[in-house]
Design a protein around this nucleic acid. Structure first.
Lengths: 258, 258
DNA sequence: GAGTGGTCTAGACCACATT
DNA sequence: ATGTGGTCTAGACCACTCG
């Protein structure tokens, strides 16, 4: 393992120098995905520092999402994550007409086995933010569908859809199985003509709870995507609030130059 | 300060319990943006633990991006960041015709003072990924324009544009000042008719170098946005690779239901 | 049992900010 | 001068994984 020494005279603290050298090994390809980093004991021995110092160095790389520590086994270079593309195309009407929901379209294109669990359906008052987006009055209720999506058994996304109760109540949208084509297909069955969606995308670090639900390791941000569906009359019919494990996704959009 | 005690019998390690209690103070609004957390000395005193234990607790919140430590001053609840929206609308031709580049459109709408620095222009061979996107041959060169954008003096984005040298060489695109309306306006001056853009959005943790250039603190992810501009003939004219401080942005897109 | 990372203690000296 | 966080040492015991 080509590890150098620490320059005690440098401004850069030892733990950073160690982190730099480890990062270098990864960037140069000396260590590739799945490879094991030198153990803490080896690093302590090599650099002649205290344990906390090497742990702090490795912690840096964990925070950058480059390595993953596995208790009792070692610390490993992170596997390059599967990249999935969500083309705008995924909401095309022809898919709904073919009985495919958006996540299934994704699965088919990328070649993973899709699953949904932790389904929860409820009716009640809406948070102010949701009410605003759906342009509802203070006492209008919403139906919410919360679920978690899995790709090949791995959780990759959580989503909560909100629809005005006046629209969704009594329909198949409040059933566990919404039927072929999903929520949007049912809305069109009911006579609403979908016109367009807006998607608002941001990213941040997950809370501890979110990290648990998406089974995220240290240093992995989440993408927050809030989608609103509008009908041809410009009425918002659904707001869908999703949280994605960031590195697993590339979102793709097409923007006209107009 | 309403801090509880540590349950030594619990499975949850003390440092996590301390982190939980601090997080609670923030979530409940007992501590709001700008407020100072109890100092390490106070936490040590209150909980009766070693310093490394309280530091580990605070480190959790830093990694979540909830608090910022300032050397010599204390640790503070993070200010809610300014949110800027990049509507698809920002690339509308009418803005270019009005002599406004996209970032200026943004600035005008959101009300910040825009600036650009660290401008670097070069001509040379392209990275394979760029070559693919521009559909160039192995020995075709590209012009690159690297710059950093500031909002009210704060760095918020870095960007590198790549154009085929055969397109851009000799034009104002390789000058420091590209003129009113920016690169896209110049391309249209040259007779290329812009048709649409594709944008690929992902998020990850920044490298140390990127953190420096965007002056990011701990626990702040970046959004990577790669935009490709196409003319009406479907030819890719430009690839723009941008890095944004994630919490400062919400990207907004409109997607047709088709 | 041996090796690994996870957590904790009880100190130390330092750099930075404020008074 | 005092209080703050930044870094480091030299140990300790624990929980997990694997042969």
């Amino acid at each position: 393992m080509q590890l150098g020494a620490i320059d005690r005279a440098s401004d850069r603290p030892p733990y950073r120098q160690i982190a730099d050298q480890l990062r270098e090994l990864i960037d140069r390809g000396t260590l590739v995905a799945g490879d094991k980093l030198p153990s803490e004991a080896e690093l302590i021995e090599h650099y002649g520092v205290a344990r906390m110092t090497v742990r702090q160095a490795v912690q840096e790389l964990r925070n950058e999402g480059r390595v993953v520590a596995e208790h009792g086994k070692g610390t490993f270079v992170r596997q390059p994550v599967q990249v999935r593309r969500l083309a705008s195309e995924r909401f095309a009407r022809r898919h709904r007409e073919a009985g495919l929901a958006a996540f299934s379209v994704e699965a088919q294109k990328t070649g993973f086995t899709p699953n949904v669990d932790q389904l929860e359906i409820a009716t009640g008052p809406a948070a102010p933010e949701i009410r605003d987006r759906l342009r509802l009055g203070d006492d209008e209720e919403v139906v919410s569908r919360s679920r978690r999506y899995l790709a090949d058994g791995q959780p990759v996304e959580t989503a909560v859809s909100y629809l005005p109760a006046s629209v969704a109540a009594g329909s198949r949208i409040v059933e566990a199985d919404t039927g072929p084509g999903g929520i949007y297909a049912r809305l069109e069955d009911m006579g609403f003509e979908l016109d367009h969606f807006t998607e608002e995308v941001s990213a941040r670090m997950p809370t501890a709870e979110e990290r648990r639900r998406l089974q995220l390791t240290d240093g992995v941000p989440v993408v927050v995507l809030v989608r609103t569906a509008y009908d041809t009359a410009g009425r918002p019919l659904e707001v869908c609030d999703t949280l994605k494990a960031a590195p697993a996704y590339v979102l793709e959009y097409e923007v006209p130059a107009r």
